[in-house]
């Protein structure tokens, strides 16, 4: 039996989180949801992640803080897909690229496009 790849989804909006989890589960991934930035950081070392999907605006710590924390753990090389708000998109890209985010997806997104990006990033 092939183990499903683990994806950490840091997203505080339950409606978005449930849909992403549903879509990626159907694509064969195991999705764990963190509801805020602190929970996301707590999860970083919890298991081996194929990808982290990170929303920018979250309670407690935002996506930028989580991304900086991730990059501080230099032994962990996990690709990061950032979900950005439409109005902040171009500024977010520059910021996130400096911090090593792999890809960006603007909200509102097409769930099919999200799944396609995820599969491209993890190489399946």
């Amino acid at each position: 039996m092939i183990d499903r790849l683990n994806i950490l989804l840091a997203e505080d909006d339950q409606q978005i989180a449930r849909l992403v989890q549903f879509k990626l589960d159907r694509e064969g991934f195991n999705v764990v949801i963190a509801e805020d930035g602190k929970e996301a950081i707590d999860y970083l070392l919890a298991r081996k992640w194929a990808l982290i999907i990170l929303d920018v605006m979250m309670p407690v710590h935002d996506g930028w803080y989580v991304l900086k924390k991730l990059r501080q753990f230099t032994e962990i090389h996990i690709p990061v897909l950032m979900l950005t708000a439409k109005s902040y998109h171009s500024k977010d890209i520059a910021n996130a690229a400096e911090l090593g985010a792999s890809q960006f997806l603007r909200k509102p997104f097409d769930p099919n496009e999200l799944a396609a990006q995820v599969k491209r990033i993890v190489g399946v």
Binding site: Q15, I16, A85, K86, P108, F109
Partner: peptide, 11 residues
């Protein structure tokens, strides 16, 4: 408005 703008089209 901001929250709704970021999700409604997705659904």
């Amino acid at each position: 408005a901001h929250s709704l703008a970021g999700i409604a089209e997705t659904y």
